[in-house]
């Protein structure tokens, strides 16, 4: 089955079968990055524009490498968010880019909804690379790919997502994806950063890190931004780490083969201790590797809509 949509705007509206297709395709692409010549001609002649209105190293590089390994031409277009205050509207930006006839636009913006709004005005494929506090679908897909690589399944797993849930697009996309795939999702964070309305997504909420980690198959830590302290969401980094930071001691209640994940960049000693981040349970760097496979799969499925799941090269 093909991916039946023109854009990837979020996980919320994906069918489980579509997630399955993307993960399967990504699994078959993983091997390309292990070759001595890491390039296949699948997207030769296609142009991918990375349109980033927000600073990003990892996601932007990952998309660029993914496109290049499929032989697409990539252009990085870093726009300052202040263009809005200068009077340039989203619509202007969209129309200008449309005129350059790209095949795909990979968009990151600090304003929630930007990829959706732009997709309404573009014939080009739009891929959401993170919009405000809304969604970060490729992160959730690479997280699911990583979990499945280790656990061989998603269904029935206990996944604890821990930290600043309120402001996290990674949390939202993972909640949608993991619940669709049958995982049991627990959210944990300070009450100020985890409003009760998250219950609408069919997840469990707890303020007790121990309860979240108990028998967990996955501990997914979220980056905590220092400025949240200034906004009185929590009193100090020290107390935050004490109550919600992950260290070896707290991890003991989890399953013996627990996976520790983090979308990066990590704050050592804030949400995660160094020994856990660098320890035997951590798959943080594998997540980065898998990010390339997932983004290759998406570019492939969205830019070659007729393509089959079974990818055979030469």
């Amino acid at each position: 089955m093909p991916l039946n949509r023109p854009h990837l705007l979020g996980i919320e509206d994906l069918e489980p079968a579509e997630i399955e297709l993307i993960l399967k395709t990504a699994e078959s692409f993983r091997e390309i990055s292990a070759r001595p010549i890491k390039k296949v001609p699948a997207l030769r002649g296609k142009t991918v524009i990375n349109l980033f209105f927000e600073p990003s190293t990892r996601t932007r590089s990952s998309f660029e490498i993914a496109a290049k390994r499929l032989s697409a031409d990539t252009i990085n277009f870093s726009a300052s968010t202040s263009s809005a205050s200068k009077g340039e509207t989203l619509l202007d930006t969209a129309k200008n880019l449309q005129s350059m006839a790209p095949d795909a636009l990979v968009i990151r913006h600090s304003a929630s909804g930007t990829p959706l709004v732009l997709s309404k005005h573009l014939k080009t494929v739009v891929i959401n690379a993170g919009d405000g506090m809304h969604e970060h679908p490729t992160q959730a897909l690479l997280d699911m790919l990583t979990i499945r690589e280790h656990k061989k399944r998603l269904k029935g797993l206990k996944v604890a997502i821990i930290g600043d849930i309120l402001h996290s697009r990674v949390a939202r996309s993972n909640i949608y994806g993991l619940t669709k795939m049958g995982a049991r999702v627990w959210l944990c964070g300070p009450s100020t950063l985890m409003p009760g309305q998250f219950r609408q997504f069919g997840v469990k909420l707890t303020w007790d890190l121990r309860e979240a980690l108990e028998n967990a198959d996955v501990a997914m830590m979220l980056r905590i931004q220092q400025e949240r302290q200034q906004e009185n969401f929590f009193p100090s980094v020290k107390e935050y780490f004490d109550l919600f930071g992950l260290d070896r001691q707290k991890l003991r209640v989890a399953k013996p083969d627990v996976l520790v994940m983090h979308p990066g960049p990590i704050n050592r000693g804030v949400e995660i201790s160094s020994d856990v981040a660098d320890g035997e349970f951590s798959v943080i760097l594998e997540q980065v590797t898998n990010g390339i496979a997932v983004r290759m799969a998406l570019l492939y499925l969205l830019l070659l809509p007729g393509a089959s799941t079974k990818v055979v090269w030469e």
Partner: peptide, 12 residues
Amino acid sequence: NEGEASIRLGLK
């Protein structure tokens, strides 16, 4: 408005 919709849309 702060509520289920704002949480879903990711708007403050």
